[in-house]
Amino acid sequence: MLAQIIQNLPQVLIDGLTLGVVYAVVAIGYTMVYGILELINFAHGDVFMTGAFIGATVLFLMLGMGFLAAMPALIVFLIVIVVAGIATGLLGVGIERVAYRPLRRKNAPKLIALITSIGISFVLEDAVRFIAELKTGNYIVTAPSMFNHRFNLNLHHIMPFFDNATFQGSFLLVLAVTIVMLVSLDLFVNKTKWGMAMRAVAQDRDTASLMTINVNRVISVTFFIGSALGGATGVLFMIQYGTIDPYIGFILGIKAFTAAVLGGIGNIRGAMFGGVMLGLLEMFAAANLSIITHGAMGAEYKDVFAFIILILVLIFKPEGLFGKAVVEKV
């Protein structure tokens, strides 16, 4: 059994890293909003989904205009991801202005904002499904193939205890773009004035407003950045996996939230680590559950595995791996 698990390890690492970086970027959207507003924005997973559909729409338009044949695929990809990122960033700002800001002004209970975010999630799902069916006749969309050349890692000749592994060219693209986004965000939050303002608002909103920080503007910027990253990640998901539907954001969003909790909700670097870790653990479960349980459980139980992790973290370390326990002053 152990030998089989070790043989599959290279492929598990590749697949897990691909999925994990997607979780990481989406988890950052949750953790940024929570860090400032203490709100779990469950609509964020569907902003990710909307980004995937916007990216597919732009890609189909460019295909119809002949750009895919006339321009390098990398340039087309950059145009698609920038358009999707800006569009979903503006969508996130609109959601904050229309749905969350009025509740914040009225000092509504946090539960009301949470329920509102769930409602927005359903609205986005149904709106995207309606538009997709109206335009294509089907809400399941298969995007044009890009970067689908397969590479083989002949590890067996070098290390006989490993099987050979394969990956698509899109794996390298997803990994490179995600690393650039994560590093850029980390530098933005820790090295710029806007990042300092975001951290100040997260620390104490009232005191930050007294120090001439425009809290509403900072919150809008936070929603724009988190939503833009989520939308751009939707494009990466579309490029990597090819097929999308209006409901991909629901389960992936909950898993990204799990990753944020695992790393420490409100901690950006913790969200990055939690996402990668969850992706690796989930792919390990998908590849090896059947072997470990002697066929009693298969790869379809990988989602259960992810949520078992969430339950264990909440029981034994509710502040997350990188979070700090908050002591309430009496």
Results as ranks from 00 to 15, higher is better:
36 I>F: 10
322 F>E: 03
327 V>A: 14
233 T>H: 04
154 N>W: 13
178 T>S: 15
188 F>C: 08
240 Q>D: 06
265 I>C: 04
136 T>G: 14
320 G>H: 07
188 F>W: 10
275 G>D: 03
255 K>W: 09
98 V>Y: 12
25 V>S: 01
223 F>V: 02
140 I>P: 00
97 R>F: 11
48 F>Q: 03
31 T>E: 03
64 G>N: 15
230 G>R: 06
130 F>C: 00
96 E>V: 02
70 A>M: 11
205 R>W: 11
41 N>R: 02
139 Y>G: 04
10 P>G: 10
304 V>T: 09
266 G>Q: 04
23 Y>Q: 05
179 I>M: 13
241 Y>Q: 01
309 I>L: 08
151 F>C: 08
127 A>V: 13
234 G>K: 02
158 I>N: 06
108 A>P: 01
93 V>W: 09
292 I>L: 15
86 I>L: 15
286 A>V: 00
105 R>Y: 06
65 M>I: 07
132 A>F: 13
204 D>W: 12
72 P>T: 05
127 A>G: 00
88 T>H: 02
72 P>N: 14
204 D>V: 11
147 F>W: 03
33 V>W: 10
104 R>A: 12
118 I>S: 05
205 R>I: 08
142 T>A: 08
321 L>P: 01
227 S>C: 05
78 L>T: 03
104 R>Q: 07
295 G>I: 04
287 A>S: 12
153 L>A: 12
233 T>K: 03
98 V>C: 01
159 M>H: 11
83 V>E: 04
10 P>T: 05
154 N>E: 12
156 H>M: 07
102 P>R: 06
